[in-house]
Design a protein around this nucleic acid. Structure first.
Lengths: 338, 338
DNA sequence: ACTGGCACTCGCCCGTGGGGAGTGCCAGGC
DNA sequence: GCCTGGCACTCCCCACGGGCGAGTGCCAGT
């Protein structure tokens, strides 16, 4: 049913529609692409493609536009990832190299992605779940008040205040700090609970309450901080969406403010490789006319977080995917260096 | 020129236009407000108001809409701040009381403001410039690698990595930590530079390099962190802007992404009391059809940061001002408690 | 100083009528 | 059997034009 030429026709339709934003007809197609056949033949192919649900007509006697299913086929079979040009790659690297800390890396990445793709960019902060503990620090702020500081290998720092059930001496503190670090330093995050399990027992009775509190706070931090943070940018690009504005844009803006929604969206992406969710493939209703291109990034071989862009289903998939992949790669490098 | 009734007419025009979003005519005015005069008289008043630049006609033979100057007069002379109703005040307090840390307070405040005013909310993180140092901590992560942690009385925590020019012993570290804290703890941020000025000299020659590095990093942190962070929310409310969408909304979204612009905007607000900037009064061009209502908030008597909302010039000023003031007050309380 | 009346101005809505792009189908040719 | 040119048909888009109504400015009268 779908011979080579028909796929080529679909590709041409997607290409033209993405460019012009207008339904594309058979005549215009043959003029702009050298398909080697006449408009009449293309019309037959179009009828077949419509039959299969890859394209649709907004109304009778209008040109065709791709459906979600059509974009899906395009992305899966017809479109490659367009690599970035060398100057652009250099620009990415230069821009990211200027970052001074983790916040800055994320902020710059968002700006970069938004500019390159001219769409809304979403970047998740490196997750704690996969990272390792670089250092745990305990500070005594007052006789019965401690502060716990957790430093990860991705450069993230978390702190918690702790009110102790009983005063806690400097010696005990130093002791606890040393033992904690020897156990958890450079261990994977997920392993920490098991590693500190029986620590309380080895302390004096009077200190056990405090030690237990410290440990449970530490574990709490692990759990709480698995709730990821993220940063978005480039929302002004939403104005390039279409003509029927308020209706399209409002639910998207609402969805973008729901961090939970976005995190789920990014989370659904497979760990390795790029994920493209098109239109109604996105669980969230407000995003049913958008596509989400996302990919994991990380300092090592493993992905520690995701980043991506949200744009109209009518987007330049090869270009967007190229930009997303390139940015993810360089962010990973930056993180590995620091 | 502007007698009592004419001001009353202006008030009525603003009121109706804010409600209906449509130019208001003389007849409609007399019907909806008991001005005690006939439409013809109102027409004369309107002509006078237009002469003075407080109202304008979109086109001949249409109703009048307020100009920026008209809103200005309205805000300054005609409108009070509408206090929040008791149930709403309780709701605010309950919602903010649920916050677990500073980030959460700010996040909740943004949501609250956006919901209450149905506009875009902007909340600045409590500034470091006015706050005092609660504690400075130094951790040794590696022989020649330190971490500096700064804790402020507003609950904010900043950390910096330091590469030392020479290895730095634990004794020296403890010494530096103790001396630093005794000098700067509970001192105002602005005073710190002077307080640590001559500290280097009292250390052994071999350690001086490191001490100097630590001190300069500390001072750097002060300066850098005077660059404020802020959080925005409720951008979906921009869709309620008007009919001529893309043109109006795009520059606003762009402005909102420029933190610098927003910070300047908030910064211009006077320290005490509420500031309302209307339309072209905003320096930024993209915001020339918006009004910004902002106010300082703080844990004590002094404001440590600002918050506010951005909306169309055609907004409910008394209600918005009431909501902004109420939220600022409760946030201040929450900060004071923690 | 206010009011009622009146002529006038425009924006808005709606129906109408080409013009054009695109389609489906069919008969004919390679 | 597949492709092509031709042809009639369908609709969207847009420009034109008239009627309606809200609103105005002005003026004469109280």
């Amino acid at each position: 049913m779908l011979n080579e030429r028909r796929l080529e026709v679909l590709r041409a339709i997607v290409h033209d529609y993405v460019g012009t934003e207008e339904p594309v007809g058979s005549k215009a197609l043959t003029e702009r692409h050298s398909l080697g056949v006449s408009p009449a033949t293309v019309r037959n192919d179009m009828a077949a493609l419509e039959e299969e649900g890859f394209i649709a007509q907004p109304h009778t006697s209008a040109g065709r536009i791709p459906t979600d299913k059509g974009y899906r086929l395009f992305v899966d079979k017809l479109a490659g990832v367009k690599p970035m040009a060398a100057p652009e790659r250099r620009a990415i690297q230069n821009f990211l190299d200027g970052a001074v800390d983790l916040d800055d890396v994320v902020a710059r990445t968002v700006r970069l992605l938004a500019q390159l793709t001219r769409q809304v960019a979403v970047v998740q902060y490196p997750s704690l779940t996969r990272s390792t503990v670089r250092h745990v620090e305990l500070l005594s702020l007052a006789p019965a008040r401690l502060m716990l500081v957790l430093i990860t290998d991705t450069g993230r720092v978390e702190q918690r205040m702790i009110d102790c059930p009983a005063p806690f001496g400097e010696t005990s503190l130093a002791d606890l700090r040393a033992r904690l670090n020897s156990r958890v330093a450079s261990r994977r995050f997920a392993d920490v609970p098991q590693l500190v399990q029986d620590m309380t027992e080895s302390f004096d009775a009077e200190d056990r309450g405090t030690v237990a509190t410290v440990l449970s706070t530490l574990l709490e931090t692990l759990v709480e901080e698995t709730e990821e943070r993220l940063m978005i940018g480039g929302t002004a690009n939403l104005t390039r969406f279409g003509h029927d504005f308020p209706l399209t844009i409002r639910p998207v803006l609402e969805a973008l403010e729901e961090q939970v929604v976005l995190l789920k969206l990014l989370g659904e992406a497979t760990d390795s490789g790029m994920t493209v969710r098109i239109g109604h493939e996105n669980a969230h209703e407000g995003l049913s006319s958008t596509s989400v291109v996302s990919v994991g990034y990380g300092s090592g071989s493993e992905a520690v977080a995701k980043l991506g862009v949200v744009g109209p289903t009518r987007m330049d998939y090869p270009g967007t995917m190229g930009a997303v992949r390139a940015v993810a790669r360089y962010v990973g490098q930056i993180l590995a260096e620091s």
